[in-house]
């Protein structure tokens, strides 16, 4: 395995872990844990494909792994976007998206997030303000 491939792999794994960090550190305040985890999974699978392609020289297997990575990425994107997709609506509902966008974490009730209140923008029991993004900032 070349040094370039090792460096590339280390960077990819590090970025994957960086994406997973919010899921671990802010599990109570982050509602899209599934989506973020799926995004990190996509990158880890991509890393595996890169190792198989450049390290082992198995082109066909690597393309299959890249396809799996693309499917994981598609799933992550869908998990982010599903709040805004309504079957049969025929397009964007401008008023609805504007109100949702004002919070950014709306639709939390659909996610298994315990006591998280969707009306507060998806942040658990947090007052609106600078510290509302952190669990520790809400005085709990």
């Amino acid at each position: 395995m070349s040094r370039v491939l090792v460096a590339q792999t280390v960077v990819l794994v590090a970025i994957s872990l960086a994406i997973l960090y919010p899921v671990v550190a802010y599990a109570r305040t982050l509602l899209y844990t599934e989506a973020v985890t799926m995004l990190a999974t996509s990158l880890l699978v991509f890393t595996a494909g890169s190792i198989v392609e450049e390290g082992l020289g198995m082109v066909t297997a690597s393309e299959g792994i890249y396809l799996l990575s693309a499917l994981c990425f598609a799933a992550a994107t869908w998990l982010f976007a599903r709040e805004f997709v309504r079957p049969g609506s025929g397009g964007f509902d401008v008023d609805d998206t504007a109100s949702r966008a004002s919070t950014g974490f709306d639709g939390a009730a659909d996610v298994d997030a315990g006591d998280i209140d969707a009306s507060k923008g998806g942040f658990s029991s947090a007052p609106q303000g600078v510290d509302s993004t952190t669990e520790g900032g809400d005085g709990e």
């Binding site: 393309e63 396809l67 598609a74 994107t77 869908w78 976007a81 964007f92 004002s102 919070t103 974490f105």
Partner: peptide, 30 residues
Amino acid sequence: LAELFRLGQVVVLAATLPIAVIAARGYRDA
């Protein structure tokens, strides 16, 4: 088989693009 896998990637990612646009548009002011 490799070409079929690549074709699959193109199809999946092309389908993902409008979904990504919907997500980005939905959260545009958030």
